[in-house]
């Protein structure tokens, strides 16, 4: 049993897939920064940003549905911004009598709320496209290229490699637990939710599984260390220098950043 579905990379041959990882990485960050800096209520800018990311999604051949589905992951967090319409002062939209209180929603507050939700939604889409169109090893190269410390990128690489191996192990542990935790036959369906004793006991079982996962990870790290040593590892992290960043790459990067800067300028000028 292998956990393929954990890896969000979707192979493809689109121009988005083919683009240099450094380019995609920097442009994604710039896109998210632009969305973040765009003032609340600057609807045309949000629409243009959406048009931009939507074009990239179509170009990538990922399927807009796939990206949109994954982008809903961040949705529950919108709850955190839900009080905004009621706490920001401004023109009254509607009032709700609530016990002794009067809950008043303002237009400005609503605009802030929708803006936060839109910023978040646009940013998640960009991150989804980046992860789905760029193999993680290429992302590592991009991170090395923008001078993220080598020790950290080496850690990212190792973690990503063993994430799948250990996720397999975790899955086997969970399957073993499931195989031994049936509810009594004839019990109500809800009983299976409570099967296996108290919450504390269940948590401790999960904890024991986590403990054995950690123990195996410790032991594995010893063997990996030996394997690294035997191929010359000396405590320093080394990697090949990234391939050259060509003039064409620079041009694309400049064009992309300029476009985002224009959008941002537009937003700041009229709504800032």
């Amino acid at each position: 049993m292998h956990i393929h579905f954990l890896d969000p990379y979707r192979s493809g041959s689109s121009p988005v897939h083919a683009a240099d990882a450094r380019l995609k990485f920097v442009l994604t960050l710039a896109f998210i920064l632009t969305a973040s800096l765009t003032p609340p209520g600057a609807w045309p800018v949000y629409i243009l940003l959406f048009a931009l990311i939507l074009s990239v999604e179509i170009l990538s051949g990922l399927g807009v549905g796939y990206v949109l589905k994954r982008s809903l992951l961040a949705l529950p967090f919108v709850l955190a911004a839900l009080p905004l319409p009621f706490t920001v002062e401004g023109r009254t939209l509607f009032s709700l009598p609530l016990g002794g209180w009067m809950l008043t929603a303002s237009l400005e507050g609503l605009a802030r709320f929708v803006s936060v939700a839109l910023k978040s939604w646009l940013s998640v889409q960009a991150a989804v496209v980046l992860a789905a169109c760029t193999p993680f090893p290429d992302l590592l190269m991009a991170m090395r290229a923008i001078r993220i410390p080598r020790l950290l990128t080496a850690m990212f690489g190792l973690t990503w490699r063993y994430l799948f191996v250990l996720a397999d192990e975790a899955l086997r542990l969970m399957r073993a637990r499931a195989a031994r935790s049936g509810a009594e036959t004839g019990a109500a369906p809800s009983a299976s939710l409570r099967a296996g004793g108290s919450v504390a006991w269940r948590a401790r079982v999960a904890g024991g599984m986590a403990g054995s996962l950690f123990l195996r990870a410790f032991e594995r790290s010893d063997r990996i260390y030996a394997a690294m040593l035997s191929r010359g590892y000396d405590g320093e992290v080394r990697a090949l220098p990234p391939p050259t960043f060509t003039a064409a790459h620079w041009l694309t990067l400049t064009l992309g950043l300029t476009l985002l800067a224009l959008l941002l300028g537009f937003g700041l000028l009229f709504w800032g």
């Binding site: 090893p137 690489g157 490699r161 035997s230 191929r231 010359g232």
Partner: peptide
């Protein structure tokens, strides 16, 4: 370590890099 190539029992311990290229290149890079 360059003269003796040690192949461990469990390839999952020996292949610790993200891609096959990175792993095979590891020794030569070092």
């Amino acid at each position: 370590r360059a003269a003796v190539g040690l192949v461990f029992q469990n390839p999952d311990d020996q292949l610790f890099s993200p891609t096959v290229f990175d792993d095979v290149a590891y020794g030569p890079i070092y």
